[in-house]
Design a protein around this nucleic acid. Sequence first.
DNA 1: CTGAAAGCGCTTACAG
DNA 2: CTGAAAGCGCTTACAG
Lengths: 343, 343
Amino acid sequence: MADKTVGHPTGKRVTAAMVAARAGTSVATVSLVANGKHEGRVSVRNVERVRAAIDALGYVADHAAQSLATGTSNIVVLVTPDASNPFFGSVISGIRAELGTPYQLLVSVTGEGRVPTAAGLGQLSALRPAGLLVEAPSETFLQEMRLQTALVLLDAPGHDAAPPAVNFDLEAGVRDLVAHLHELGHRTLGYLAGRTATETFILRERMVEDAAAGYGIAVHAADVAASIIDLEAASAAFLDVWPSWSALGVTAVVCATDTHAYGVLAAARSLRLRIPEDLAVTGFDNLPYSTISDPPLTTVELPGEALGRSGALALLAQIEGRVAERPPVLRAPLIRRASTIGR
Amino acid sequence: MADKTVGHPTGKRVTAAMVAARAGTSVATVSLVANGKHEGRVSVRNVERVRAAIDALGYVADHAAQSLATGTSNIVVLVTPDASNPFFGSVISGIRAELGTPYQLLVSVTGEGRVPTAAGLGQLSALRPAGLLVEAPSETFLQEMRLQTALVLLDAPGHDAAPPAVNFDLEAGVRDLVAHLHELGHRTLGYLAGRTATETFILRERMVEDAAAGYGIAVHAADVAASIIDLEAASAAFLDVWPSWSALGVTAVVCATDTHAYGVLAAARSLRLRIPEDLAVTGFDNLPYSTISDPPLTTVELPGEALGRSGALALLAQIEGRVAERPPVLRAPLIRRASTIGR
DNA sequence: CTGAAAGCGCTTACAG
DNA sequence: CTGAAAGCGCTTACAG
């Protein structure tokens, strides 16, 4: 395996022409065999010779040439607003698990939670990707985005038609969350969110407010002045808003992500607030760390790996022209832990 | 910005020929201007007309054609063994911060902590990447890898010559860690590691053992039977090994990563072990979660973002043929928290 | 079944 | 300063 390049000086790129020469066929035949399109078109003898030559030389079709000739590529691009959130890692895992080897996953981080620029979109389009997966897109992004490429949205509530989107069923989870807090006696909530204009975050907040309204619970919102999801920024934002929230009688704070909630835990500790006695805290995600945080975090679980998997499957169906079933809506159950119910 | 494609039916890819037609020049001239190689070679008038046409049509050079013609591409590939570790996210952030817009970052996860296959390497090479960043490579990987591409290793201890590698100065951090544990009275350590054959993990273990030997401290090692860095797998591994460690008199467990340490925290809780009174726990990474874990985690900080930044800078120097200074060795300081010193 | 040839959309000597 | 043309390495009708 390690000596694939033996027989040819290293540094020389192996081309179809070299394979053809060795196999004693034309380049066309090499292409047919290399792409498995030889059934009934290439003699068994030549198929074998070409295969042997491919193996011996370690030939892999040049990606650029191939994609120029076919007008497409085997690159799947994941556009994501934020690489630092660990939720993102599980989504990648899920995508890769379903995508398999024929495709290369290109992660394009729009950066700092911002919308990709027109130039960025141009660059993406210039790659002629086989397909695009766009995570938590903003409204603006969706408008600017009109590529002629297979496209699936991940966590883009309100967009389950065209392009297809894999979404979470936040409704049930949020309802359970608010009911849970109500049952524990909370009547005034704080809601801490990131400042990104991402649909899914806007929706989380609205859903919490709607559910709370049903119980006559008041909700006071505050934004984290950071473009990415960041524990320390969330901490600072909470320290900032706590005096006013405290005066308003806030007894529980619902955070847009677990990471925000961790920030609140850290801040609350520095304020010597007891959790949940003085303040209950909840998140969204159910990151693995929520089991070992102090205290463990009550949260609405968002299955990132499943999101990635379903998205990849939907995209593959589209790429390969198969009839795509409507992507699933993923359950987002409430996980009750000590940050609301105590130990 | 949103109507860049106005004037031409959407779905039509804009080519240099279309730009040339509109500007009234040849394609060659378009190429020169688009690539900023027009100084003293294209009349001011034509530069302007081409630029106007490029803007009007929203032209972006086709990536495949460009890379076929030039023999290279603007893709930088990050090869990483594990996307689920949040440490990885900070490395990506750092890389992107330095790489800037001219390059596209392609993240190739070798998957499950394994070495990439020969086929995988072939696929990478077929992309003609501008450069490769390889995170925590295994020995095998380095042997199979002989691409004619700019290459920088990240966290590849013992490989700071050629290819260049950005490494952590683990020595000092580990020495401080072991001294710290010794000072607290620990004389028998457990060492919990992942099973991946990654150099950096092997080195961490050896360094701990060496430092411990200096103090006459015994070290008992155990492996997590999971190919990726995973809290729950680490938890299970610890539950498995604890009876024997306990019998051996282990009073502190050093973990190869913070994530492993979180697993130990979770397991210890289920065993009702008090930390650090019954068992001290430490990690490597200093993930943000280590401040809000129960208890907060003593750990050797590995600056992931800085790793990514330095790696990207070294790679850019190589790509652009600049004289590269030797990449820095990054400090990895010991962070003392309650998981060893108590509250 | 087979191969010569056109074409994908660029870049880059080259001749003018 | 300018453009015609070759060439990058494939794939795919097409003619045989």
